[in-house]
Design a protein around this nucleic acid. Structure first.
Length: 281
DNA sequence: GTAGGGTTACCA
DNA sequence: TGGTAACCCTAC
């Protein structure tokens, strides 16, 4: 890829926006071919259009909606912090004086770490807090980080890249899409040293809360996250439907206007063709 | 033809 | 050095 990058101009972006408004997302070829926009987009391929739209708004489904989903998940997590991370051994929230897990501290911890820490910190935090001896699946890690931190648009891509990088650096090991901290990674040593019982806790089965407890073999954490996702997903669909209704209403209004103009023009034509002198206001 | 993940140039 | 945006690749 030695090609120099061709930055998008304001005109191109505007043409893309209008093209999407006219044809909808996913109709990149139609937009690109449309004579109205082609004069601005002739140097761009349909793929370019798709990529640019993804960069601008996070893809056809709308990054804004994905943000809303994330916000929803976070809101749920914050609304019920005890339900979401009740018993997970967490070196960050262990009371140094007593050695006990400070459950209330988990919410505080979440708040304190919201200020977009670096990916490495987030990754290691996930390893520490989710403490999975068999390795952490990337989806679980993403859910956890999205729940606890403000993340960028293409956070998932960046996270994957970062994980690969850490594997390459020998800080992590990957096995069947699960990531584990290498034994000699200082973080684990540090966490274990802080709380000597931590390693024992690792091997314990996760306790299940009786009130609305975990179901079907999931941990409570996973169940809560899955639940939050379902709700967010449903709300997304509702939002998309509402947008579609708005769009339909807008098109109907345009049709109505067009009809008025047509009637007016027709009337004028009739008057003019009938030798009638018509004054326009 | 499109979606989504990966790669890389560029910038702060 | 990390983040972003443009470009590339591949599966569907």
């Amino acid at each position: 890829m030695g090609n120099p990058k061709q930055k998008w101009t304001q005109e191109e972006e505007e043409a893309l926006r209008k093209g999407v408004a006219k044809h909808g997302t996913g109709k990149w070829k139609d937009i690109q071919r449309d004579p109205e926009f082609n004069k601005f987009l002739f140097s761009r391929s349909n793929i370019d259009l798709k990529d640019k739209w993804r960069n601008m708004f996070g893809g056809g489904s709308g990054q804004g909606q994905r943000d809303k989903a994330r916000a929803k998940i976070k809101a749920l997590a914050e609304a019920a912090p005890l339900a979401i991370q009740p018993f997970i051994p967490n070196a960050s929230v262990i009371d140094e004086a007593t050695g006990e897990i400070a459950v209330d501290g988990s919410a505080k911890h979440v708040d304190e770490t919201k200020s977009t820490p670096r990916y490495d910190d987030m990754i290691f935090e996930a390893f520490t807090n989710l403490n999975e001896p068999s390795g952490l699946e990337i989806g679980v890690m993403i859910s956890y980080i999205e729940k606890c931190h403000e993340v960028s648009q293409n956070f998932r891509r960046q996270l994957r890249a970062r994980l690969k990088r850490l594997v390459a650096l020998g800080k992590l090991e990957e096995n069947q899409n699960r990531y584990k901290l290498k034994e000699d990674t200082p973080l684990i040593v540090k966490a274990a040293a802080k709380n000597p019982t931590l390693q024992e806790q690792d091997n314990r089965p996760r306790p299940v809360q009786s009130a609305g407890g975990a179901m079907f073999g999931e941990t409570l954490d996973e169940a809560a996250v899955a639940c939050a996702y379902r709700i967010a997903e449903a709300e997304n669909k509702s939002f998309v439907a509402a947008e579609a209704v708005k769009e339909a209403e807008r098109v109907a209004k345009m049709a109505e206007d067009a009809e008025s103009i047509y009637q007016f023009t027709k009337e004028m034509l009739e008057r003019c063709s009938g030798d009638e002198i018509t004054l326009l206001a």
